[in-house]
């Protein structure tokens, strides 16, 4: 399929989803049963934006100074959760710097993808974290699910993983590249981390 046409179609769908998402948000206020549809719509829009970001070609990180604590609260506030969804908590390690330098928009996309993934496995809680590790700011998403290697009912496309990896790599500081990791957390559950130089 023609690349330009693909881009136009995907953009159109994304914008339409945005409108739908807003309408569902309004409906949610009077009818809680719509919440699941709203959450689905949000995740679809995020996936499409992730897809567009990934396939647009070379990714440039536009770094600016960001307060990690504020950033994580905003990311959390923007996740729409239906009533029975897991809770999302934030743990800021005391060594976390007041500001760090990264592309807020891109890293938000990465964390959204990781959170969407965690939502599929978490039992009751997802924890967002920030800490400093050497020359890196490490942002993490941990769930309290069964951990890695679980058979999924609806297998993921791998889009989220690739998006996160590409976003981490786009962050370079004095020759040092960012990276991501996915492992089982010591406390149980799966742990996603994005390391930003």
């Amino acid at each position: 399929m023609d690349e330009k046409l693909t881009a136009v179609v995907v953009h159109d769908m994304k914008n339409a989803l945005g409108v739908l998402e807003d309408q569902l948000a309004i409906l949610c206020q009077s009818n809680p049963e719509v919440a699941a549809s709203h959450a689905l719509c949000t995740s679809l829009r995020q996936k499409l934006i992730g897809f567009l970001t990934l396939y647009k070609g070379e990714m440039t990180a536009r770094i600016s100074d960001v307060c990690p604590e504020d950033f994580l609260s905003e990311v959390r506030d923007l996740v729409f959760l239906p009533p029975d969804a897991p809770e999302i908590g934030i743990v800021i390690s005391p060594d976390t710097p007041v500001i760090w330098f990264f592309d807020e928009r891109l890293v938000q996309l990465a964390l959204e993808a990781a959170i969407q993934n965690a939502l599929r496995f978490a039992r009751s809680r997802i924890t967002l974290g920030a800490r400093r590790e050497g020359g890196f700011l490490v942002l993490s998403v941990r769930d309290d699910g069964p951990g890695l290697g679980t058979l999924e009912e609806t297998p993921s496309t791998g889009l989220g993983t690739e998006l996160c990896r590409t976003i981490a790599w786009a962050h370079v500081r004095e020759g040092v590249k960012g990276h991501v990791s996915l492992a089982n957390a010591a406390e149980g559950g799966a742990l996603f981390e994005i390391w930003l130089p």
């Binding site: 807003d22 934006i49 647009k56 923007l78 928009r105």
Partner: peptide, 28 residues
Amino acid sequence: AEAEYGSVVSAAEFQPDDYLLKPFTASK
């Protein structure tokens, strides 16, 4: 729009306080 954001930002001589990318929700 999402698609034009890159070119808009890099050539911005006068910076706005923030950019909002379409589509955005009320909570955003």
